[in-house]
Amino acid sequence: MNVIVCLKQIPNPDLQFRIAADGKDIVREGVTFKTNSTDEFALEEAVRIKEKHGGKVTAITVGPPRTVQMLREAMAKGADEAVRVAYDDPAAVDPMQVSRMLAAAVKAIPHDLILTGVQSDDYAYSETGGLLAGTLGHPHASVVTKIEIQGKEAKVWRELEGGINEVCSLPLPAVVTVQYGMNTPRFAPLPAIMRAAKATIKELQAKDLGAASWDAFAAGYSLRVRSVSPPEAKGRAEMITGKVEDVAKAVATLLREKGFYRGA
């Protein structure tokens, strides 16, 4: 059971962001990066499937040189090989283009299953897994919380709205996008971190994917950013500010006045 897991390195979404002067992107200087959270669950699941069924896990990303660190972490957590598709657009806004690059790269890697997160926490399109499946012609299931490999099929539980699940079965090879909380990702043990630090990360350029340039993966239409801004503040809360004691007084008064506190 060979599993490919697609990872994305994203700006830490817990940060506060500023808008760049041209109003087309966030300010990216000083931003710290992390592995997208649902991709972490996908990696853990891939490693667990390997541990149970044998085979190999390959971690792959499309991104700039900084993503090598993420791939090394993935290897320390159990990926056997790592591949970086060296397309370097810090603000790539079209998942179609990225999924075409991924498709070209994974075609050369024997696989039974491709896992990735259901969404990236930066752009939150929830497209890449589905587009990758469509491009490769693989069957696909999104928002998956549990996988059981049964011979040449994967039985998966998909999380629908309102907390109910759809159970379905997919012939392999297939693409599955992983929902938050599917498992508890492991920490990398120190010896594995040491080994991963020296491991080779395979780097793929456009020509390695059989293309003259990255433009060959362009989607054939123009999708670009018109503007980036703070969300309009139409429903903005009335803010209570000040020292903790003063804020607490104001909140307590409010709770009493509205009748939410009827205690002593």
């Binding site: 979404p13 808008i19 930066d122 801004s229």
Partner: peptide, 15 residues
Amino acid sequence: RKILNDKVLMQLELG
């Protein structure tokens, strides 16, 4: 679209 934990609004133009 809202991006980055809904903290930023992005407007895309599909040509």
